[in-house]
Nucleic acid binder design. Structure first.
Length: 597
RNA sequence: GGCCCCGUGGUGUAGCGGUCUAACAUGCCACCCUGUCACGGUGGAGAUCGGGGGUUCAAAUCCCCCCGGGGUCGCCA
């Protein structure tokens, strides 16, 4: 090694020791006589002093040093003179007095600050990702990610799970996201696909008798990116034999609970994890991934609305619609402009309109509310008692603002869910130190795709239906519940899994329901169907989105901040400039030609 | 593909029709400085305001198109 110690771990206990350090110049302070260097390596920062009276040669080299130069310094660990200690540095009680200095590599002036936490245009930061990763924030994120994964591995290893790799070159299947394809050189006209997840392979590992499998698995989906979505991402993928739903969810609950205690002891979690049905999540929070850090629950006021003289409510209800709302605490003073803005927001989310009811500008008990204080376009169609009844239903107090949407049940739920999220954000209702994990269960197994005129899997076609619902597959597929569970945290879906089908007949029945002929099922999924003929154990599993989980733990708003080399919104890697053209020869070997658009 | 936001010295911002010959901070360069730690001081260099077109006596500023970036809807079994 070119160094004997790291910059971050020098303390008073090493006083008088001769050490050799190597790292980057974080900052230089030139006093004409004395020169101070903050020397940085992965572990931290230490001050190095260059004194011409001690070493003229060192001082002359220090004079040439600039930001991000790579240097090696040999010197002695010394106590700082009284009064010059720096409590902001872990190494602030000591300094290294340089006796020998070597510039290992000079550096151009970086295109952005390494030593300050200033937001830089992401295009630039991604182009120079290797410099961005030197900065404290990203370095800490990458470190945290490493710890999270290490924790998962240790936890599962201690419980008898085997880490098994599965292929990256597999087969395209029609279900799910768009595949990334890899042309085959040896099989002209045929293609591999990169896995969207190791789903089928881990099920085959269960048939293989591995019983407990896990993998830190890279997954690929050729869909548009989002702040929390990348073309390639990482899952903790696991599968177990001889388990039911509660075994898997309990395991993951223990993993996450222990992990939070070990890595983020200052953050609170809700124990045990709440379990909501899909129907509850949709009706109470208007989302299948609700943020449970705050209330602001959606309430149904259809029964009250139907007794009012308000035509909008009555006509919607007469055509099978519903009237629902939320109560924004302390927003009764909102101006007309603010209310109009909320109305525009609601319409942009797909609502026909938004009815607001201001319950006065000052807080207080509902009992003291007067009709003069109630402000709403609907006010003259509502009695004071009706306003109070609606308010009570939505948990409102005087001084609050009711946001009410009338329409089709599904649309009303999702619009109010989005409004709830937005108001929660604006009013800062979410406790930043709370991690609200929860399970969402009892999803429908299937949903009807009206455009394609067929049933589709809510999760994936290998999810097992509830036993008691199996007869409904033939009669009322929409009512069949799946043994599927999602795990959510703070409004993000961070994982999902299910108990799988392990009987070939049931699997065939599902494929038929999804519109595949037996011949098609055989061609696409024959390996699964055949495997199930050879003693497939009951099994199930789950996958956690590691990028999202680490993002939340790091307090970041995009998973790009926890991935070493992420892609941008256009799925371009700006660091290495991928994707890129290839030569005609390469294409010819792959039996490909590029179509002119 | 739709919608929203953004693009001004290396970096981050201000300026939003004329006094902009474009400001501030920081960085960079030179000189001074032996206890600083976001060191300090003095001086200097550095931007045809993403590109193109238009409106106007006059455009960084208003309009249109394009390019690039971000957010989001669709999409994501």
């Amino acid at each position: 090694m070119l160094k004997t110690h790291t910059c971050g771990d020098l303390r008073k206990s090493q006083l008088g020791k001769n050490v050799t350090l190597a790292g980057w110049v974080d900052r230089r302070r030139d006093h004409g006589g004395l020169i101070f260097i903050d020397l940085r390596d992965r572990e931290g920062i230490v001050q190095v002093v260059f004194n011409p009276e001690r070493s003229k040669a060192c001082h002359e080299i220090a004079d040439q040093l600039r930001s991000e130069y790579v240097v090696r310094v040999a010197g002695v660990v010394a106590e700082r003179p009284a009064g010059t200690e720096n409590p902001r540095l872990a190494t602030g009680e000591i300094e290294v007095i340089a006796d020998n200095t070597e510039i290992l590599n000079p550096a151009k002036t970086p295109p952005f600050y390494i030593n300050e936490d200033v937001d830089v245009e992401e295009r630039l930061a991604l182009k120079y990702r290797y410099l961005d990763l030197r900065r404290a924030r990203l370095k800490a994120n990458i470190l945290l990610r490493c710890r999270v994964i290490k924790f998962m591995r240790d936890f599962l290893d201690a419980r008898g799970f085997l880490d098994i790799e599965t292929p990256i070159l597999i087969k395209s299947t029609p279900e799910g996201a768009r595949d990334y394809l890899v042309p085959s050189r040896l099989q002209p006209g045929k293609f591999y696909a990169l896995p969207q997840s190791p789903q089928q392979l881990k099920q085959l590992l269960m048939v293989a008798g591995m019983e407990k499998y896990y993998q830190i698995a890279r997954c690929f989906r050729d869909e548009d990116t989002r702040a929390d979505r990348q073309p390639e991402f990482t899952q903790l993928d696991l599968e177990m034999s001889f388990v039911d739903k509660d075994d898997v969810t309990a395991l993951i609950e223990a993993l996450l609970t222990d992990m939070m205690a070990a890595l983020k002891p200052d953050l609170r979690i809700i124990k045990p994890f709440p379990r909501l049905t899909y129907a509850q999540a949709m009706s109470r929070y208007g989302s299948d991934k609700p943020d449970l850090r705050f209330g602001l629950e959606i309430g149904d006021i259809s029964d009250i609305a139907t007794r009012t003289e308000f035509g909008v409510f009555r006509s919607v209800l007469a055509t099978g619609g519903v009237v629902r709302g939320i109560a924004a605490p302390g927003c009764g003073h909102y101006t007309r402009g603010q209310l109009e803005e909320l109305g525009r927001l609601a319409r942009s989310l797909g609502a026909e309109g938004l009815v607001t009811i201001s319950l006065g500008a000052t807080p207080g008990s509902l009992d003291t509310l007067t009709s003069e204080e109630v402000k709403s376009v609907a006010a003259r169609f509502l009695t004071l008692d009706q306003v109070k009844a609606i308010s009570a239903r939505l948990g409102a107090q005087k001084g609050d603002l009711l946001l009410i949407v009338a329409g089709k049940p599904d649309k009303t739920a999702t619009v109010l869910g989005d409004l709830r999220k937005e108001m929660g954000r604006r009013l800062k209702l979410a406790d930043p130190n709370l991690f609200a994990f929860a399970y969402i269960e009892n999803f429908p197994l299937l949903h009807w795709n009206a455009e394609l005129d067929r049933w589709e899997s809510e999760h994936h076609p290998f999810t097992a239906p509830w036993e008691e619902d199996i007869p409904l597959l033939d009669t009322a597929p929409a009512q069949v519940r799946g043994k599927h569970y999602d795990i959510v945290c703070n409004g993000y879906e961070i994982g999902g899994g299910s108990i799988r089908i392990h009987k070939p007949e049931l699997q065939r029945q599902l494929f038929r329901l999804l519109g595949y002929s037996d011949a098609e099922s055989e061609a696409l999924f024959g390996h699964m169907l055949e495997a199930f003929e050879y003693g497939a154990p009951p099994h199930g599993g789950i996958a956690l989105g590691i990028d999202r989980l680490v993002m939340l733990l790091a307090g970041e708003e995009t998973i790009r901040a926890v991935i070493a080399f992420p892609k941008n919104q256009s799925a371009v890697d700006l660091t290495v400039n991928a994707p890129a053209p290839v030569t005609e020869n390469q294409l010819a070997e792959l039996h490909l030609c590029v179509r002119e658009e």
